[in-house]
């Protein structure tokens, strides 16, 4: 095959796949600017759905809850996960295998099984569902991802630095916090972002343990699972799509400028 023809074929295939990928999203955004109740019906341009959305107290509460929950859980996960990464990195043999196995459980397990296991557990220990259970669950399911982002930084560290700290008279804690932790910060930041995003995204685990605390994904699920969907969901979805894409694209552009050709997430 002629080289130009080949390149043309490759390009058109990629372009076609890109259309498949983004067309549904674009259609959704387009239809968020019309106020027809039924899906896929255009009844003229209108921003009414957006007005309704921002006046919807339920959505605004859920949004606030989601952001607070994601922030608290990601902070806790970053602390626990960074410490765990340092610990696991210095383990040997069976201890390391066991620790890795434990960290892998929530990642490999189906989210629904993790969710119902949390639900049963909180019932047995009589912890009422709500903020506390959500924070515990979100922290536990996001820690492994923090460990995964911190671990590569650790293997790049000079192993003698911590020892040097100790030899110069610092306690292990002090050596850890003044020598090791500052160098792990980039890994911790990407771990935090990942934990934050995963927490914002989760509804399967949350659904079983949220009590009466609503988050955006739970609000979405409850509204979508009902047939005859509320049209303001189109506006909400469009806003969320654009927000997520904008943040991700900005983050990737910034990082691409700094470290060439590396996806942040």
């Amino acid at each position: 095959m002629n080289k130009n023809v080949k390149t043309g074929v490759v390009w058109s295939f990629v372009a076609l796949m890109l259309v498949f990928m983004y067309l549904p999203i674009i259609i959704l955004i387009v239809f968020s600017f019309t106020d027809a109740r039924a899906l896929g019906v255009w009844s003229g341009f209108s921003v009414e759905l957006y007005v309704d959305l921002f006046n919807n107290a339920q959505v605004m509460t859920a949004l606030g809850n989601s952001l607070i929950l994601a922030f608290v859980a990601a902070m806790l996960a970053t602390l626990l996960g960074t410490a765990a990464a340092v610990g696991i990195f210095h383990m040997r043999k069976w201890k390391k295998h066991t620790a890795n196995f434990v960290a892998n459980i929530t990642m490999e397990n189906a989210e629904i099984v993790t969710g119902v296991a949390f639900m049963i557990f909180f019932l047995v220990v009589r912890l009422p569902n709500g903020w506390i259970t959500l924070i515990i669950a979100h922290t536990m399911i996001t820690v492994p991802y923090v460990i995964l982002s911190v671990m590569p930084r650790l293997s790049q560290l000079n192993p003698n630095l911590y020892e040097a700290g100790l030899d110069l008279g610092a306690s292990p804690m002090r050596s850890m916090f003044t020598v090791i932790v500052p160098q792990l910060i980039p890994g911790m930041i990407s771990g935090f972002i990942m934990a934050f995003t995963l927490s914002l995204d989760d509804f399967i685990v949350s659904k079983f343990i949220n009590g009466n605390v609503s988050t955006i994904p739970i609000y979405l699920y409850n509204a979508l699972a009902k047939k005859g969907v509320d049209p303001t969901l189109r506006a909400l979805s469009a806003v969320l799509f654009v927000a997520v894409l904008a943040v991700l694209i900005a983050m990737n552009i910034v990082s691409a400028k700094r470290r060439k050709k590396q996806l942040v997430l």
Binding site: T7, L18, T197, S237, L248
Partner: peptide, 30 residues
């Protein structure tokens, strides 16, 4: 042919970070 098109790869991976409920809703409209 397009190995160096990092942005292109990024565009295909990005939807992964959009809530799956939203993507399912988009498909529902289609």
């Amino acid at each position: 042919a397009l190995n160096k098109k990092f942005v292109l790869v990024m565009l295909f991976i990005l939807p992964m970070w959009i809530n799956s409920l939203l993507r399912t809703y988009a498909i529902k409209i289609v």
